[in-house]
Amino acid sequence: MRRSSNPPSRVLRARRGIHTRLADIWRYRELLVGLVRKELKVKYKNSSLGFLWSLVNPLLYLLVFSIAFQVILRAGIPSFPVYLLSGLLVWNFFSGGVTAGTSSVVVNASLVKKVWFPREVLVLASIGSALVNFFLQMGVLIAFLAIIRYDVAFSYVPLVIPALIVIVVLTSAVALLLSAVNVYLRDTQHFLELALLAWFWVTPIVYPFMLMGGREEKWQAAIYMTNPVTAVVLVFQRAFYAKVDVAAVGGRFGAVDQILPGWSMGGYAAYLGAVAALSVLLLVFSLWVFGRLEGNFAEEL
């Protein structure tokens, strides 16, 4: 008789509880790190520019939106590059993580059919690799802000950390849900592309939040604020862009001369807190759905 020191026992049945699955994911955390490393290595292995490629995308966005809004439409957002990038990088993480996560189970079909490991790890690895890209881009942005001695709102910077956690939870929740659905309905990923395009434009990234969130009609503003990504984007903008009212410098965007809401720290925290609660609920729901659907992954792939 032979037993390893700590034999991992397992019960396989049609339904596994969420806490069992979370424990399994934790046990496979090293695989998660390994898969993230693999994705990054494969992505940049045979390219001459390496990770610099991940900086090209936001810079191109910056160029296009600067010309479209600041030059052609003559929108007057002062320090537009800082405004755009502090929201866009968060958005890129969200949309990149959700897109890669959604297709991750189908892309790794050969693995899913042959080896058992918690399938959630595949989705989380896609998000992990998007997160590494986000950190690289953010690092470059922060270095840039430091060089030009940009006036950052330091008191709001601590709020960035919970905001980052919230967006990771939210991205994981959406990606887990869609990745499981995508196994059964393969065009989920195509619908997702369209949905993300619309989602981008209902998030205050290239235009100021106050354009929609500051409307006279309170119900319109309320509906606009149900977009959970907005709360996270606002925190990043408040901390790094930091300009709330730009009337004094003659900045304006259409009818508004206020860019960010003039809430106190508590106001931003409350909005973020509400989104955090929603994200956790969505994550539990996604894990439940994923658990219901994963049993047949090997048959459907």
Binding site: S9, R10, L12, K113, V115, W116, E294
Partner: peptide, 10 residues
């Protein structure tokens, strides 16, 4: 790799 429809495996 496959989940049993009924029953358990330990």
């Amino acid at each position: 790799l496959l989940q049993p429809t009924e029953g358990e495996i330990f």
